[in-house]
Computed example of a mutant assay.
Amino acid sequence: MTAQEESETARQTPEPPAVIRAEHISKRFGAVEALKDVNLHVRRGEILGLIGDNGAGKSTLIKTLTGFHQPDRGRLLFDGTPTVLRSVVHARSLGIDTVFQDLAMINDLPVYLNLFLNRELTHGPLPFLRRSEMRRRAREALDSIGISIPSVDTEVGRLSGGQRQAIAVARSVYADSTRLLLLDEPLAAMGAKEGGQILRLLRRLKERRDIAIILIAHNYAQIVDICDRVNLLQHGEITLDRPTGETSVSELLELVHAEYSVD
Score class of each variant (00 low, 15 high):
204 R>V: 02
165 Q>P: 14
197 Q>H: 15
92 R>C: 10
66 T>S: 15
40 L>M: 11
53 D>C: 06
43 R>V: 02
48 L>R: 08
4 Q>M: 11
248 S>Q: 04
36 K>M: 01
24 H>K: 12
195 G>L: 15
180 L>F: 15
67 G>Y: 10
251 E>W: 15
7 S>H: 13
75 R>G: 10
159 L>Y: 03
78 F>C: 06
1 M>C: 08
120 E>H: 00
41 H>S: 13
149 I>K: 14
166 A>E: 01
258 A>E: 14
94 L>D: 12
194 E>V: 08
131 R>W: 00
52 G>T: 04
2 T>K: 11
77 L>Q: 09
231 N>I: 05
249 V>M: 04
2 T>W: 07
59 S>E: 06
91 A>H: 08
254 E>M: 07
46 E>N: 05
66 T>I: 04
148 S>I: 11
224 V>S: 06
2 T>L: 13
263 D>M: 10
44 R>T: 13
20 I>C: 11
153 D>R: 04
153 D>T: 06
69 H>D: 00
191 G>M: 04
185 E>Q: 09
209 R>S: 14
201 L>P: 12
182 L>F: 13
89 V>M: 07
208 R>Y: 11
225 D>H: 01
131 R>Y: 00
62 I>G: 01
79 D>E: 15
148 S>R: 15
49 G>E: 03
3 A>Q: 09
207 E>S: 12
195 G>R: 14
26 S>T: 05
58 K>M: 07
30 G>Q: 12
23 E>Y: 11
129 L>W: 00
169 V>A: 02
61 L>K: 10
